[in-house]
Each structure stands twice: as C-alpha cells, then as structure tokens.
C-alpha cells in the first residue's frame, strides 16, 4: 500500500479523530489558554453530566432503541437528591436516587423490552410524565441544599490532586461501562440484540431481558449524573435537565454509534461528548458568541455521520 492510500485508509477509519485534532491545532494556534491541562480538565468537568448520561444511553442505542426520557429523569432525580439530602441526609439520599434511577429505567425497559412498545414514543411519554412527576414532587418550587458544608458537595465541586471529582467519577464510570460492554456476557448480548434481534433469539438469548437491563443502566447512569448535578449546583430547579436528552444523543451520534444499533462503543461516546465540549470551549475562547457552537455542532454532526456512513458504504452519496 502506498503512502497516500494509507492516509486515506487512516482518515476513513479515524476521520473523526483527525478532524478533531485539526480543530484543536487551529484553536491552540489562536488561543494560548486552550492547550493547557487546566483547561482540558475544565472541559471534561463541564461535560461530565452529559457524559454520564451518555454512557447509559449508549447501551440503549446499541440495542437499536432510543431513550428520550433521560432529560426529564435528570431533573426529577436532581430534585429528589437535593430534597432528600435535606430530609434524610446525604447518604440515604444517594441511595434513593440510585435506586430511583434504576426503577425509572425499569419502567421504560418493561414497556419497551417486555411489552415491545415503540421506544421513541414510550420514552417521549415518559419525558412528559416525569416532568409532571417532578412538579408534583417539588410543588413547583426550587429546592436548595440547606447545609452548605455537606460532604455531598464533593461530587460536583471537590478535587483530588487538583483533578475535579466529577471528572474522576465520569472516567471511572466510563471505564466500568466499557468493561461491561466489551468484556461481559451482557455486553455481548447488547451488540447481538442491536445487530440482529431475530438471530439473537434463535441463539437462545432472551433479548427482552437485554433490552430491559439496557434501560435500567440508562436510568442508573442518569442517577449518577443527577448526583453530580445536584452537588455542583447544591440545589435544583424544575427545568434543570431540559434538553439533555438531545445533547446526549448528539454526542453519542457524533462518536459514530449508529442509531440503527449493533455497533458503537463507550470510548466513541466519550470522544463524541468530549468533542462537543471542546467545540464549545474552543469557540468561546476564540471569542465567538455562545450559541455559535450550536451551529458548529449541527455542521459537525452531519459531516461526521455522513462521512462515517460514506466510508462504510464505499461512496459518499446514497
């Protein structure tokens, strides 16, 4: 293979990373603060909430399904963790939220995995239902953590050796999720269900359980994100998680995980989410208005997915 075709092959396989590196070089050349460890950690810290949710949603997407309820779920769980912190203390509040996240995921999983309803509509319905449940729980009021000195602040605000705790939580969770997806029986069945559900059932695998568990994981990951969120804000509003479902999905798609299911990985999701963070951060450092990043995100999503698809298909146009 000559050199130019080797380059083409590299771009095809890792086009996203190449484009990302070019972006980083361009921004670094124009902003001295961009390429610093402090700034990098800052970006990852800012993306840790979206990132946590995305870890769970990745499982769901690989089974070939959607979870649009995570934004509302994030709101509800954040409100609950903050409120329960005041009511029963931080320890029990953490437990409640983690269990609560799994229960909410299980409801999705039951309706989608076991009853076989359409995932898009079920999670949309849950989005609405959980918004209502949040208002019912909070009575419409914002909640704040009364005890400002609580150790609960650690999850969102603490640092260990100058590394923000949310970054550590996110990266550790990503490592665990990656292990689960790549190395375990469960992970294997997630890919199998998304790749070919019929063949998976013909292999004696209960695909319903796999789908159910993927949604439970999505709920659990959202609970983790809610803990970081509550801890960082030390309070919660009733709209705090609005729109997260779509940002998360954008990150997952940007990483190259296909919405058809059967392919994708945790590291790709992490990459996609962090890239979104860097685009945001880089554009701000270059002095563009905040919302220009959304325009750029639009362009990047279309370009990345299109090129990915074109490379798999062998030609750019369908």
């Amino acid at each position: 293979m000559d050199r130019s075709s080797a380059v083409i092959a590299l771009v095809r396989r890792h086009g996203l990373i190449v484009a990302f590196l070019i972006f980083i070089v361009l921004v670094s050349a124009n902003s001295p603060t961009f390429l610093t460890v402090g700034n990098f950690l800052d970006v990852i810290r800012q993306t840790s909430i979206t990132g946590m949710i995305a870890l769970g949603v990745t499982f769901v997407v690989i089974t070939g399904r959607f979870d649009l309820s995570v934004g509302s779920m994030l709101t509800l769980l954040t409100v609950v963790v903050v409120d329960q912190h005041n009511a029963v203390g931080p320890g029990l509040a953490l437990l409640f939220v983690l269990v609560g996240g799994m229960v909410l995921g299980a409801v999705n999983g039951l309706l989608i995995g076991f009853i076989g309803l359409n995932a898009l509509i079920v999670t949309l319905a849950m989005l609405s239902f959980l918004q209502g449940l949040t208002l019912l729980y909070s009575g419409g009021a914002n909640v704040n953590i009364a005890d400002a000195q609580s150790w609960f602040a650690l999850f969102g605000r603490g640092t260990v050796y100058n590394i923000p705790v949310p970054v550590l939580i996110f990266l550790a969770s990503a490592a665990a999720a990656s292990f689960l997806l790549r190395k375990t029986i469960f992970g294997r069945t997630v890919y199998a269900v998304g790749g070919n559900e019929v063949a998976t059932r013909f292999s004696g695998i209960n695909s319903r359980w796999t789908i159910f568990l993927a949604y439970v994981l999505s709920g659990l990951a959202t609970a983790g994100a809610a803990i970081i969120m509550g801890s960082r804000v030390m309070g919660a509003q009733n709209t705090i998680g609005q729109g997260y479902e779509l940002t998360v999905l954008a990150g997952v798609v940007l990483g190259g995980t296909s919405l058809i299911g059967g392919s994708g990985s945790i590291w790709r999701t992490v990459l996609g989410i962090i890239m979104l963070g860097f685009i945001q951060n880089g554009l701000l450092l270059l002095g563009y208005p905040y919302y220009v990043q959304w325009l750029v995100t639009w362009f990047v999503i279309i370009a990345a997915v299109w090129i990915d698809l074109g490379a798999k298909r062998g030609r750019l146009f369908a």
Binding site: R188, Y191, A192, G195, N196, V198, A199, F202, S203
Partner: peptide, 15 residues
C-alpha cells in the same frame, strides 16, 4: 435468523 452480520466469526460462533 442465523448470524449477527455486524459481528465477527468468533462472536457469532460462541453466541
């Protein structure tokens, strides 16, 4: 019904 086409031979064999 037989194969998950997006998986490799090893993964299909042990499924």
């Amino acid at each position: 019904q037989g194969l998950v086409l997006g998986m490799n031979g090893r993964e299909n064999t042990t499924l």
